[in-house]
Design a protein around this nucleic acid. Structure first.
Length: 697
DNA sequence: TTAGTCCAATTTTTT
DNA sequence: ATTGGACTAA
C-alpha cells in the first residue's frame, strides 16, 4: 500500500521541526517508519544518527523490525527506545559527572515504596499522619514537573515539611546509588543543562530526532527534547491530542497543542483519514470524543464501509459480564475471526479476574498483558539479588533484600544495623560480603555462611558459568525456604526462577553484561503470560488495560466495565473536569482500537473488597445517539404486577428497613410475585413484592 | 528474635 | 478476598 498524499508529505518533509497530527488509525506508525526510511535512503543519513523515541520498549523493537522490512537490515541501526531507556544509556556513560558511580542502578516501584516507608518510620511519622503513598505521589508529581527539592513548592501536611522529606528521599537514593524512573529523565536533563561538554557530545550524536505519542510527554521529557535538539532543530513529533491518557503521569497535552509556538517555523501535517475502523465504529468514537472541549481542530474521516453497529450490553454482575464476553468472543471466532485478533480491554487490572476465570472454564485461549510483571515477582527479585551478589554488582538494597532470606536470624533491628555497618565500611556491598566469610561484626557474622557460599559458587562458575545462580540458591538454602509456602506455590516459584535462569543464559550468550541485564529487568515492561489453553502458535485473545492498548489494533474489541466509577473512574471524577476529559479520551482510545466489531459491556453489580457495588452505566453512554450504539438494556421481562413501578432485574431499589439494593431475580405472577434483592448492607433477601414496600431509586 | 495471630489497607492507569 | 504489617507471647 502506498502512502496517501498527506502521509507522503509528512514522510518526505525536509529539515526543521515537524508536527504530525495523526488521528487514530491514520497510519501514524507507517508514516514515521517511511520518514526514517526516507531520511536514510533519499537523504543519505546514517541510521545510527537517527534517534526514534517511542512510548514502550516493545514499540521500539517493532519500529526497528518494520523499518528493516522497508529498507533492509540497515534499519536495525537506528537508535530507538523510550525516554527512560535512552536516558539510562546516556547516564551509564556520564553519570559520574553527576556524582553517581557508573554502576548505579534503577529502583523499582516496590523498593521505592519500601524506602519511603522506612524513611517515614525512622522519623516516627505514622501512616495516619502522612500516608506513604501520598508522599510518594507528591514527590513524583514534583519530578514530573521537573522540580527538584530546592525549587519544589512549599508544601506542609499536618505540620510536616514535605519538601524536607523529598530532600531526604533524594539523598537516600543517591546514597544507595539508585535512580528512580523520573531521575533517569531529570538527570539526563541535568547533563544537558549543566555540563556543556557532555551536552555538546550528546547533541552532536544525532542528526534527526523523532518522537512518537508526543501527546503523552511530561515537562521533564519536553526539556529533554529541547536541550537535545536545540542546535539542529530536526525534531519530528507525532501524536494525537485526543489520545492523551497519561495526565496522571505528568503528561501535558499543551506540549502538542503549542508545539508550533515553541518550535518556530514548525511545519504541521494532518493525517485525518482513518484506515482502521468501520464507519460505524468511527461514528461512535467521534460521538464520544465530541463531548470534550478544547481539542486541536481535526477531523477523522472514515475510509471504510459502515459495518456492524457497535453494541452495548448490560449484564447482571461481573461474572455474567465475563460469560457474555466469552460468548461473544466464541461467536466471533466461529465467524472466522482469529483469536489473536481479539482483545478485551478494561479500566482496572482487577477486572481481568472474572474474565480469566470464565475463559479458563470455557477453554478459550487468552493471554493477560500486564498485571504483575515477571521481574516484579518476589522470587525473581530475590533470585536477581543473589545473582547480583554473585556477579559483584549487588548494592545495599540487594543485600538488604536477601539478608534474612532464608531466615538467618536477622530481624528488622539487625537489618538496619547491617546497613549501618555496610555504610561504615565504605565498601561496595558485594565486596564487603567477601570479608565476612570467617567472621563479622554484630549481625554481619550471621552472613558468613552466605559469604562462603558465594565464594564457593564463584569458583564453580569458572567451569560452568550458567549454573551459578541455581547453585547459590541451593547452597544458601533459599530454594528450601520456598518450600515453606506450600507445594504448589513453591513449584510455580521454582518454575519462574528456572525461566529467569533461561533468560540469564541467553543474555550471557549474547554477551550482555550483568549490569545491562539488571537495566533490562528494571525497564522492561511487565512480561506477558500465556495460559495453558493457548494454542502452540501462541494464538490467543489479549486481555489488557485500556492504557496498555494504546497504539494497538484488533479485528474485534470488547470494552468491559463501562460504568460510572470505573470508566470514568471515581478517582478521576474526584479530580473534576480535567479528569473526566481524560477518561473520555480513554474510552475513545478503546473504541478506536477496533477494526470490525465492537462490544461494550456494563454490570449492574460489581463486587470489590468483599462487598457489593451497584454502579450506574457510564455517563458517556448517555451522550451517544441511539442509532450509533445498539443496546440491550432490559435483559429480563418487566414485572407486570407492578407495571407502574416497572421493576426490572438490575433495578436499584430502596427498602424501608434493609436500605438500598438491586433486584437479582423475579419469580411468580400477580400477587405472588417474589423478588430476590441483593441489599448493600443487609445481604440477599427473598421478598413478596406485594408486601415489601420497595421503591425505585 | 521468631512465630503466631489479628487487623488494616488495598486497587487507576505505567516508564 | 487477599496480603502485608502490627502486635503479642515465648
Amino acid at each position: 500500500m502506498q502512502l496517501n498524499p498527506a502521509q507522503q508529505q509528512a514522510a518526505e518533509a525536509g529539515d526543521g521541526p515537524q508536527l504530525i497530527l495523526a488521528g487514530a488509525g491514520s497510519g501514524k506508525t507507517r508514516t514515521i517508519i517511511h520518514r526514517i526510511g526516507h531520511l536514510i535512503a533519499a537523504r543519505g543519513i546514517a541510521p545510527h544518527r537517527i534517534l526514534a523515541v517511542t512510548f514502550t520498549n516493545k514499540a521500539a523493537s517493532e519500529l526497528k523490525s518494520r523499518l528493516s522490512l522497508l529498507i533492509g537490515d540497515e534499519g536495525g541501526g537506528v537508535i530507538s527506545g523510550t525516554f527512560h531507556a535512552l536516558s539510562l544509556s546516556f547516564l551509564r556513560r556520564y553519570a559520574d559527572a553527576l556524582g553517581y558511580p557508573k554502576s548505579f542502578q534503577v529502583i523499582d516501584a516496590d523498593d521505592q515504596k519500601a524506602l519511603i516507608r522506612r524513611l517515614l518510620k525512622a522519623r516516627n511519622i505514622s501512616n495516619d499522619t502522612l500516608h506513604p503513598g501520598y508522599l510518594l505521589n507528591w514527590i513524583e508529581h514534583c519530578k514530573h514537573a521537573a522540580l527538584n527539592p530546592a525549587n519544589a513548592p512549599q508544601q506542609a501536611w499536618n505540620d510536616i515539611d514535605m519538601r524536607e522529606l523529598y530532600n531526604i528521599y533524594q539523598q537516600e537514593l543517591v546514597q544507595h546509588e539508585r535512580m528512580d524512573f523520573s531521575d533517569l529523565l531529570l538527570n539526563t536533563v541535568r547533563l544537558l543543562k549543566d555540563f556543556p561538554d557532555i551536552a555538546a557530545l550528546l547533541r552532536a550524536r544525532f542528526d534527526h530526532v523523532l518522537v512518537d505519542e508526543y501527546q503523552d510527554t511530561n515537562p521533564a521529557q519536553h526539556a529533554w527534547l529541547q536541550l537535545l535538539c536545540c542546535e539542529h532543530r530536526n525534531l519530528t513529533v507525532v501524536g494525537d491530542d485526543d489520545q492523551s491518557i497519561y495526565g496522571w503521569r505528568g503528561a501535558d497535552v499543551r506540549h502538542i497543542l503549542h508545539f508550533e509556538s515553541v518550535w518556530e517555523g514548525a511545519k504541521v501535517h494532518r493525517l485525518e483519514h482513518n484506515y482502521r475502523s468501520t464507519a460505524a465504529i468511527l461514528n461512535l468514537a467521534n460521538a464520544v470524543i465530541d463531548g470534550n472541549p478544547e481539542r486541536h481542530s481535526k477531523q477523522l474521516r472514515a475510509t471504510r464501509e459502515d459495518g456492524e453497529t457497535p453494541f452495548w450490553q448490560v449484564c447482571q454482575d461481573e461474572y455474567d459480564e465475563a460469560r457474555r464476553i466469552a460468548a461473544a468472543l466464541r461467536n466471533w471466532h466461529q465467524q472466522g475471526m482469529p483469536w489473536r485478533e481479539m482483545a478485551v480491554l478494561y479500566r482496572t487490572s482487577r477486572q481481568s479476574l472474572p474474565i480469566e476465570q470464565v475463559l479458563n472454564e470455557t477453554g478459550l485461549p487468552y493471554r493477560v498483558i500486564g498485571g504483575v510483571g515477571f521481574f516484579e515477582r518476589m522470587e525473581i527479585k530475590d533470585a536477581l539479588a543473589y545473582w547480583a551478589l554473585l556477579h559483584r554488582c549487588a548494592d545495599a538494597l540487594h543485600m538488604r533484600r536477601i539478608a534474612n532470606k532464608p531466615k538467618r536470624g536477622i530481624g528488622a533491628v539487625g537489618e538496619q544495623r547491617l546497613m549501618d555497618l555496610l555504610a561504615a565500611s565504605g565498601m561496595r556491598a558485594a565486596d564487603w560480603l567477601d570479608t565476612l566469610a570467617e567472621s563479622g561484626p554484630g549481625p554481619a557474622a550471621k552472613l558468613s555462611g552466605l559469604a562462603r557460599a558465594v565464594i564457593a559458587v564463584r569458583q564453580q562458575m569458572m567451569q560452568q558459568p550458567d549454573l551459578g545462580l541455581e547453585a547459590l540458591l541451593q547452597a544458601s538454602g533459599y530454594l528450601e525456604s520456598l518450600q515453606a509456602m506450600g507445594e504448589i506455590e513453591a513449584a510455580t516459584r521454582r518454575e519462574n526462577i528456572q525461566a529467569l535462569q533461561d533468560y540469564l543464559a541467553i543474555a550471557a550468550a549474547e554477551g550482555i553484561t550483568p549490569i545491562e541485564f539488571l537495566d533490562r529487568a528494571a525497564l522492561l515492561q511487565s512480561g506477558e503470560q500465556v495460559n495453558k489453553a493457548a494454542s502452540e502458535d501462541g494464538a490467543a485473545i489479549s486481555l489488557m488495560s485500556l492504557h496498555r492498548a494504546k497504539g494497538l489494533e484488533f479485528d474485534g474489541i470488547v470494552l468491559g466495565g463501562i460504568e460510572d466509577g470505573l470508566l470514568p473512574h471515581q478517582r478521576s471524577l474526584d479530580e473534576g473536569p480535567t479528569g473526566l476529559s481524560e477518561e473520555r479520551r480513554l474510552l475513545y482510545v478503546g473504541i478506536t482500537r477496533a477494526k470490525d466489531r465492537l462490544l461494550l459491556t456494563s454490570a449492574r453489580i460489581r463486587r470489590s473488597f468483599g462487598d457489593m457495588q451497584f454502579p450506574q452505566p457510564s455517563r458517556f453512554i448517555a451522550e451517544i445517539p441511539r442509532d450509533i450504539l445498539a443496546r440491550e438494556e432490559n435483559t429480563a421481562p418487566t414485572v407486570t404486577a407492578n407495571a407502574d413501578i416497572g421493576l426490572n432485574i438490575g433495578s436499584n431499589v430502596r427498602h424501608p428497613s434493609f436500605g438500598e439494593g438491586v433486584i437479582l431475580g423475579v419469580e411468580g405472577a400477580g400477587d405472588a410475585v417474589r423478588v430476590s434483592v441483593a441489599f448493600r448492607t443487609a445481604g440477599t433477601k427473598q421478598l413478596m413484592l406485594k408486601y415489601a414496600a420497595l421503591e425505585m431509586i
